[in-house]
Design a protein around this nucleic acid. Structure first.
Lengths: 197, 197
DNA sequence: GAGACCATGTAATCGGTTACATGATTCA
DNA sequence: TGAATCATGTAACCGATTACATGGTCTC
């Protein structure tokens, strides 16, 4: 029936689905979120969000219920459809590129934030475990590259490499902490898997 | 004559100008760079690089000298023109958005790497100084936001915030180190400013 | 009634990605 | 001679950004 397996979700679309899964919101509310919270790496301009919402609606992944009708500009409050939940789950479950340098940590982080409420805690823990391993591997790789090239690099190049290494190492440390935290049996809430509005 | 103040340089264009400023290269050499070094956040696909090189050439910022002519596919080796150097300098000197959360640290890092050989060490040091201040401010801002919202966040949201904070803190630590390193009178090489192939 | 803010959209542009295509050179 | 690698490009698509545009509502 649905068959709306369009292409992979963009980062913005994933963020929108995750936020709407958390609770239904209007386009304007989403804009305000992007404008006023640390999710500000997304643009809060209307030309960014409304077309994306329109696409998701056209794909049947979200549905807008009009509030404040008879107004010329009724306020649309969007919520996920079943297909939208499926798309969100699929996005969260996408395997991370194994060879991929960096692979935009912020995207992985965003996915992590939405995971427990969507696909449950055990899968989230597995995600963090592989992320931790992958990041540690990347740090080692970068260190080795640094050792091999440090002689020919100018000072700024050397410092650039060190920045890459230390940032990657910070990612790895965080992944380790998050892994331990989510795997531990403290915080027995969030356990139910879904629907915690 | 030149008058080619097109729009702002994209990150890819800045990277290409910086690399070509360092030494002339062919498109293929640039692809290999992206494919095999930690600059791999850039795509190494031909459809990415060649159009960008073509644009830069059309704008008079780089010029390709054909090597190995009479071959059907001659190898183009690009080097910066005077206008290209100017564009690179302008890009490196762009002020960082003061209110900007995150503002893509990797872009700032990339710019830093090219700075000493292009606009000289003192300006680079100033750049690092303001970067350090800005990052510390951002860390404080994030910490405050965390304190204000920690009560209503689920575990994963809390961990997400902590990731943002710790990564920003790692950026700040690096900026501090880089600032001290570049400001110190050790490493008296790299001093000349440009042309150190 | 003027300005700020709520709220939603459209149009033009532009660059990056993907996929396709071509042919030369080198090496087994 | 066939495969891998060198080397350069084009075409189609798609989505993000920017700027523009509209009108309602609330407050002084």
């Amino acid at each position: 029936m649905t068959r709306m397996n369009k292409r992979r979700l963009s980062l913005l679309e994933g963020a929108l689905l995750g936020l709407l899964h958390d609770e239904p919101r209007s386009g304007y509310a989403l804009r305000k979120l992007f404008a006023t919270t640390p999710m500000g790496n997304f643009s809060d301009s209307p030309g960014s969000i409304y077309p994306a919402l329109g696409r998701l609606a056209a794909q049947g992944r979200i549905a807008g219920s009009v509030e404040n009708a008879r107004s010329l500009r009724p306020r649309q409050v969007y919520r996920l459809t079943a297909a939208g939940v499926g798309a969100l789950e699929g996005w969260l479950r996408e395997p991370m590129a194994p060879g991929g340098m960096t692979e935009d940590f912020s995207a992985l982080l965003l996915r992590f934030v939405f995971m427990p409420q969507t696909i449950g805690r055990p899968e989230t823990v597995r995600f963090l475990a592989t992320l931790e391993v992958e990041l540690k591997r990347q740090v080692a790789e970068l260190r080795q590259f640094y050792r091999q090239t440090v002689r020919v690099l100018p000072t700024s190049g050397r410092l650039g490499m060190r920045a890459g290494i230390e940032i990657c190492a910070a990612h790895a440390r965080w992944a380790s902490l998050a892994h331990r935290t989510m795997a531990g049996r403290n915080k027995p809430k969030d356990r139910s898997g879904r629907s915690e509005s």
